[in-house]
Each structure stands twice: as C-alpha cells, then as structure tokens.
Design a protein around this nucleic acid. Sequence first.
DNA 1: TTGTAGGCGTTATCAC
DNA 2: GTGATAACGCCTACAA
Lengths: 336, 336
Amino acid sequence: MTKRATVADVAAWAKVSTATVSNVLSNRSGRVSTKTRQRVLDAIEALDYTYNETAATLRSNKSNIIGLVIHDLSNPYYTELIAKINRELVKHGFATILACSDENLESQQSYLHLMKRHNALAVLLCPTWETTAEHLNAWRDLSPTITFLRPIGSHECDFIGIDNYQAAYDLTTRLINDGHRHIAFIGGSQHSRLRRQRLQGWKDAHEDAGITWNDAYVYYCASSMSAGAETTMRLFQQDTPITSLVCYQDVVAFGAMNALQYLGKKVGSEIAVTGFDGLNDAKGWFPSLTTAEVQINVFAEHIVERLLARLNKPEDPPSVTLLHSHIHWRNSSNHK
Amino acid sequence: MTKRATVADVAAWAKVSTATVSNVLSNRSGRVSTKTRQRVLDAIEALDYTYNETAATLRSNKSNIIGLVIHDLSNPYYTELIAKINRELVKHGFATILACSDENLESQQSYLHLMKRHNALAVLLCPTWETTAEHLNAWRDLSPTITFLRPIGSHECDFIGIDNYQAAYDLTTRLINDGHRHIAFIGGSQHSRLRRQRLQGWKDAHEDAGITWNDAYVYYCASSMSAGAETTMRLFQQDTPITSLVCYQDVVAFGAMNALQYLGKKVGSEIAVTGFDGLNDAKGWFPSLTTAEVQINVFAEHIVERLLARLNKPEDPPSVTLLHSHIHWRNSSNHK
DNA sequence: TTGTAGGCGTTATCAC
DNA sequence: GTGATAACGCCTACAA
C-alpha cells in the first residue's frame, strides 16, 4: 500500500509549481501554456495521481457533494426518481450522499445535519409530512435546499412538484363521461397533502358533473401493491355498486387489478382502474394501466436544473414549479 | 450567512485548547475531566458548532464515507437492499455515497474512481457481469471492497451471496413431487451467473428425479413485471403442456401471474408459479407467491458486518459467505 | 488533565 | 505564465 501521489509529487515530476498543477487540474483556461499543461498531464499519468476532493473541499470551502434526502425507498416511483436524479447529478460532476428518513422527522433532521457536517453543496429533499419551513431554516443559508414532490407549507423554499389536482380531476371527469357513477378513490395516508390534492380533484370532478360523491367510496391504504390488493379485495368481496377505481398511485393500482382479476372481474370492461405515476410497468401490464404521468426523467431534470440555477443565484427568490401530468388512456379504463 | 464556528472558536469560548475540544468531540474516554467536558459541550451548543468531516478526513486520512455501487436501481429487490444497507451504515456512523452503474463496466469503474477521489473508507459493490478481479485491484488496497450478490470470478474479494443453486433445486423438486412434469424456467439475462446457478438447480432437480428437462422451456426476460408478463403471455397464447413456472425473480413472477390471470388461468390450482427474492409484496399478492427468500435485512446486516470485520482486519484472507434461502410455500404453487 | 505546534493536500493570493 | 507561501479546520504527538 504505497502512498497516494499528491499535487506536490506531480509538480516535482513535471518540474513546475503546485499552483500550476492546480491550474491544470481545475482547467483554468489560459493560465497554463499548452506545453506545460501536457507535462503536468504526463506526470499525473506517470504517478497515477488521484485528485483529493477532501482537501479541495476544505481549502475552497466548496464541495461537490449533493445531499439527497428522501422519505421512502420502498416505492418504485421514488427509486426510479432517485436513480434519474443521481444520473443527472453525476453528469454535472456531483456525488450524491443518500439518506432515507422513513417518514421520520427526527431522522430527516439528523440527516440534514449529516449533510452539513459533510459540507454538502446543496440538499435535494423530499420532506416528511411534518416538516415546516422552520425545520429547514437551520441549513438553508449554508446549503441551498430544493424540495420536491411534497410541498412544505410555505414558499420560502424552492419546490418542484406535480399538478395533482388537475390530473385527478381529469381522470375522474373522463370516467364520469364514460358513464361511471360509482367511482372509488383508493390509497394514500391521512397525512399526505398530495392525497388531499388528488382527492379534491376527484371530488370537484363529481360536483362539476352534478354528481354527489360518496365519502364511503374513499379508502386509505399503504403505498404498496399488497396494500392495494387487500383494500380492493375487502371492497369487492361484498356486493358493491362501484364500477371504477381511481388509485392514488400506480403500485396501488397494480394491487387493485390483481385483486380484481383474482375475483374473476374483468379489469377495463367490467371495472375501470386508473393510477398515478407512470411507472415503467404500467404500459406492459395486462390490461395496460391508465395513469397520470410526469415522466420521471423530465421531473429529475427539472429538479437538477433548479439546483443549478439556485447555485448560480443564491439570492433569487424561491421558485415553485408545478409540472403538468400527461394522462395515458389505456385498456384498464376501457374507453369508448 | 455568518461563518461556521470551528474548534478554535469553541476552544476560545470554553477557555481550553483545541486539543481538549478535539478530545471531547471524539469521545476519548478519560482524557477530559467531566467539568471541562461540560464547558466544551456548552460552547458547542452556544456557538452552534458543527463538526467538519472534511477537515477531519483530510487530517486523519480516514473518512466515514462508504461507497455503495450497484448495477441497477429499477428492481425493487435491489432498492430494498440498498435501503437496508443504508440504514445499517447510518447506525454505525457512516455516510453513503450512492452510484448506479446501470450494468455498464465503464461507469462502474468511473464510480470507483469517484469513491477514491472522495477517500471512501470502503466500497460495497454489486458488480457488473464483466467485472473481474483485475478491475478491482486498482482500489482494493486503498479502500477495501466488499462484493455482494454477484460473485466476480475469483476469490480475491470478500463476497456475500445467496445459495441460488440449492433454492432452485428445492423449488423444482417440490414441483416435481407435486406431479408437475412440464416446468418452465423464466427470466434473467444471458450474462447472469446467478441465473446459471438457479437454472442448474432446475436442471439437476429434473435429472435427479429421472425426468428429462426441456430446453424449449427455458426463457430469458428482463427483470421487470412487464417483461415477465409479456413472456408468459407469449408462452400461453398458444397451446402448451406447461403446468408450472419457476421464475428467476419475484418481479418476473408477479408479471407471470398477471398474464395468467388475464388469460383466465387459475394461478395455483391450474398453473403453479414460484419466485425468488422474498419481496414484501409476495405474501400479500393474490394468490400469495411461493418464493425463495433470504431476508433482505439479514442480508444487509451480513454485508455490513463483513465490512466492519474487514476494516478491523485488513490483512485477513478474503471471506466468502453464502446465505441459505428459506422457501415460503404459498398458494401460487398450491401444494397438497 | 491540558496546551503547543505542525501538518494533512489542496487552492487563493500575491509576487515575479 | 509561473512560482512561493499562506491558509482551510481538524488531529495528534509531545511537552507541560
């Protein structure tokens, strides 16, 4: 285990100063002659030099680490999203420190503290529901924080989200126009603001069509296929007039379809099912799932663009972006 | 944005030296009197001091960052696993830099390089199939590397894996004993060594039972529910004598069950389906999925334990651990 | 038990 | 264009 070469070693080999090596390393244009530059590059090659981010961060007070703090890693929607965000960040030369709060405010705060200890350049945060602006104030001035998916109650933070209300409204309206009169809403937890937005779309679509919605058709369930399946099973094991399900998430919809098929009901023609998220598997399911999608890579790009903009202009007022969903009408809702 | 307090500031406030502050910070037992210690803690509180990991890493040449490099973040099995590993690492005071190679050797190598730049204390790696021992030699002496799930061809690296052969053998044998004679094997890619192990178990179970296995019953498919569904659909759209499916992964099994139900076949009684992984959703599916499981949190614990052991004894010979699967016999394979 | 002082590897600031 | 030198914030002998 020989010691790692340093800029000093490289400088000695190339017969230049450490400052010159540093200039080459950070690609400072014009500061170094082509010839010197090449000699330095040769030295780096010859000595198998590896840049030390730690030292650079300490000296320049500027790391290239982005903290990514999310509340859940068991839902494929979130994991697809962090995979894309990660890829975007790498493209821009950043490294990602990952942390999962498991919907626990205390862990989230301790992870934010961790990011501070590591001098994270910025934090991308999908906050727990209890999070308020005050919880973030402690870090915000040191590391800009971009929130996504889940809004905190205030406008003091950059935020990138989805037009939950509109998408749910559109989905429900279409089902009503197709003749459905008993439409259940399935999924989400009581604390979820997203759920409230989607549920409101569902309610308003009813009211605007002159139909009274039924509170007994609204169900909570965890964000998993099995939870969706179990909830749907309970619903249809007894007689019910329900003819369609607006599911809070695609995973819940998958579970719902599984339960319906198990009960021998035809999804699409007999019972319509819709989802939310646009997971990769939605299209290839049998029947293919109607779902409200914001393309995950588009979403990830927006988040990282917002991050870059914020780094460039720390003093700009916070920005709120709502991305519009595209609804893919597929066989699970069997439209005429 | 006032400047962050440093040990020097804390020392000044508490009227002690920086060395004493450092001793308090690193909890060096007995080096500091209770009284002094408390004054330092008060100073930390009063100045809102935050430890600077970067400076500590530079000075001590020992970071608390663990690199986690994985080949895929779209399969729930892997995401559940990294979630658990992440949690374990946090417990031990580590931070995780995450990277996803997307089954691309070049990206993997560049991520390993990234970990080196950041002075990662160690790397946990689920390698791409092309990875050989040579690819890892460049880092191994600097940062110990623990491989998991996928073996590289040599024994130069710590490895934690699963007894793929045995589990597949047991699953298939049970199906044969239940009377199945036409058992398909579905899923996995051609490069996958895991798949080869599981397939070998499938083959040997046939041979040991005196049954000739049929190459036409072996199918490749991508690791997703839709791919599993599509493959199964193609299989059963025509007449086939197949009565059971040994699926390479749970996600493939979910897709297979979806296709079968869509075709009106009863999973369990008519067609038996088995999976591999023990995903959370396997139990709550309708019908519940028979699957070979190594509990993901147990797996994660083993990986992190191995990591700690390696950090304690860098010179110990590499160790290979194979974890035994437990097969959950459930309704999807409807045994008598 | 506490303090002093030097250095980890890089970058910033000046000179030249 | 290039070089000397002083930081960045912390750790760790060693001295007191």
